[in-house]
Design a protein around this nucleic acid. Structure first.
Lengths: 211, 211
DNA sequence: CAAATTTTTTTAGTCCACTAAAAATTTTAC
DNA sequence: GTAAAATTTTTAGTGGACTAAAAAAATTTG
């Protein structure tokens, strides 16, 4: 799967340390909130010094970033697998899209950690975070746009619609509900799904005056 | 305006300290990012000890929270004043709503500080922040819903639309673009406005298959 | 005005992220 | 197998948020 056939001993060891660090971080992040965990603790479990963690990932957020990058890759794979089958209608498409994303996130880390991720993606202290998130959003929106174009090809949508703009609009709508889902411990996925459905129905039953 | 006619000397002094602290914080936040500023510096300008700042506002985010609360009050006033006049169409309504919000935020604090605000509203370290933001969102959405109901009353919208759901959907859509606007230093208000218009047009030119 | 009460400040300290540089260790290259 | 290079660890330190408690100052109350 990896492209490099021969890694020097040094490189392999580095890879191992990297892996141990993010594995340690993941296990700790899951059982306690981000700021109840010290770099020291991560380093100890990973069997390296805390300075090494800093050298590898820069900041504590940097460690989290690596975790998220991994999760993102998987999410895109999952979306590709589970979304391309049936070309049903637009509402169903978006609801399935939303469901996959919600379910995926919670299998990796819990809400409290994702809150920190979303928070870090916007606060700008760690520019890489912002970048990663913009890229992920772009990829996710692209998936949606692609599916919308398929719906149009099948005749489910008028040719007059702008798939790109519609895709971004729907992505943003869905993302708002996702953030709301993550931001509140009480909100279940099904509640969020319900809210999103209401959003879509309200928009789609809009009758244009000139019609 | 305030309900208490007679404040004891102690209460007045507290009020004064409070005011001095947030004034000091505001001036500092504007000229440097949130984490380049120390509580110590705020305290010094305000003429109190750093411990007093902690006692009053708990955390540095707490100070920021107080600033934002003030700004929120004004925003709601401005919206009430500038929105209730002409009942034009839905797109114009939302674009004006968006414009007012964007312009308002930048008159108070700059983007880098608002990033921290949005970030703090979701990260959950300071539950008050989350609460304040939910409340603000609720009030803003209510304004939108009220205006949508007016449009319906004038006949601009079909009676079949659910104003509440539509209001929330449009609020979320608009808010996504607002966050994007804040998150990027390069993005101008007009660009964001343009993107939002595209979102709306894409959604509204959707032709429902059964029509 | 004196005693009681409230509030702020001073003092002292903890914790942890993050950094720089010296020392130790390990891998590589010949 | 030894010298050179790379990398980690140890050590030591800074900065700043936040806290607890004692000391000082101010306000209120009779």
């Amino acid at each position: 799967m990896e492209r490099s056939p021969t890694l020097s001993l040094r490189e392999r060891q580095k890879e191992g340390r990297r892996a141990r660090i993010i594995a340690a971080a993941k296990s700790l992040f899951v059982e306690a909130g981000l700021d109840n965990i010290t770099i020291e603790a991560i380093a100890e479990i990973a069997g390296v010094s805390s300075v090494t963690v800093h050298n590898y990932y820069g900041t504590k957020s940097g460690v989290l970033l690596a975790l998220v990058a991994e999760s993102d890759r998987e999410l895109l794979e999952t979306l590709d697998k589970e979304l391309t089958n049936q070309p049903d209608d637009l509402v169903d498409l978006l609801l399935r899209f939303f469901t996959i994303i919600c379910d995926h996130t919670l299998t990796h880390l819990d809400k409290s950690v994702w809150r920190q991720v979303i928070s870090a993606s916007v606060d700008g202290r760690e520019p890489r975070f912002n970048k990663l998130y913009r890229e992920l959003d772009h990829k996710l929106a692209s998936v949606l746009i692609r599916e919308i174009e398929q719906l149009r090809a099948v005749g489910q949508l008028a040719d007059s619609v702008n798939s790109t703009h519609l895709g971004w609009a729907l992505f943003n709508l869905q993302n708002a509900r996702f953030v709301e889902f993550i931001a509140s411990d009480n909100k279940t996925r099904d509640q969020a799904l319900h809210d999103l459905r209401n959003d879509l129905l309200a928009l789609f039953t809009l009758v244009i005056p000139t019609c």
